[in-house]
Amino acid sequence: MRSFLRVLLGLALVFAGTSHLTFARQDFRAQVPDFVPLDTDTTVLASGVAEIGLGSALLVTPRRHRRLVGTLAAWFFVAVFPGNISQWLNRRDAFGLDSDTKRIGRLFGQPLLIAASLWSTRDGSRRS
């Protein structure tokens, strides 16, 4: 189950990253908080490249390094969470999130992505 979730998460990240660079670029711009010092489009492109890299790493990294990759992916999801909050606070429509209820509902998905990143890259043993 862990491997399945890791592969699914890796594929989702590669897909999302690719969409940052192509067909969903405008929607991702709606998530960039106003306080980010970079140009909005630059931020979208950079986060897309990061997602492709993290997703690819989740797919191909050898078992001995998966914990590190999972931790990096979890931190990435923490880092982009303010974008989800910004989209909700500023009532920016994107990705079919065209109501406050839908936008706030999405906020609850982020902790699940963080947990999936961590859980799917651990080997399941009790060691620390």
Rank of each mutant, 00 (worst) to 15 (best):
F76M: 06
Q87H: 06
Q26D: 15
Q110N: 15
S120M: 08
S99T: 13
E51R: 15
L89D: 05
P82R: 08
S56N: 05
A16V: 07
A24Y: 11
G124Q: 01
G17L: 06
L112M: 10
V78R: 02
A46L: 15
F23V: 15
L89H: 04
G109W: 04
R103C: 03
P37R: 08
L5P: 01
F15G: 07
F81A: 14
D34K: 02
W88A: 15
Q87R: 12
V80E: 05
S99N: 04
V32D: 07
V80P: 07
A73H: 00
V80K: 03
R64W: 02
G55C: 11
L11F: 13
G48F: 14
M1V: 11
L89T: 09
L59D: 02
S125L: 06
I104Y: 07
S125M: 03
F77H: 05
S128V: 12
P82T: 12
I52D: 10
R64I: 06
L45C: 11
P33I: 14
A50F: 14
L97G: 00
G10C: 11
L58H: 01
R67N: 03
R25G: 06
L58G: 01
A12G: 15
L45I: 15
A115R: 03
S19V: 14
S125I: 02
R126I: 05
G105Q: 08
G48Y: 12
L112F: 04
L107C: 04
V44H: 07
L54K: 07
F28E: 03
M1P: 12
D123P: 00
R91V: 04
F81P: 09
T121W: 02
D98K: 02
S56V: 13
R64V: 07
P111Y: 01
I85V: 15
D34Q: 06
V44R: 04
R106S: 01
P37N: 01
N90P: 00
T61P: 07
V80Y: 04
H65D: 12
D41R: 04
R25K: 14
V80A: 06
K102M: 08
V69M: 03
G55T: 08
D27W: 13
A74G: 02
S86F: 05
R25D: 11
W119C: 04
L11C: 15
F77E: 07
G55R: 10
V60T: 06
I52L: 11
Q26F: 11
G48M: 09
R103K: 10
R63I: 01
Q31Y: 13
L45D: 14
G105W: 09
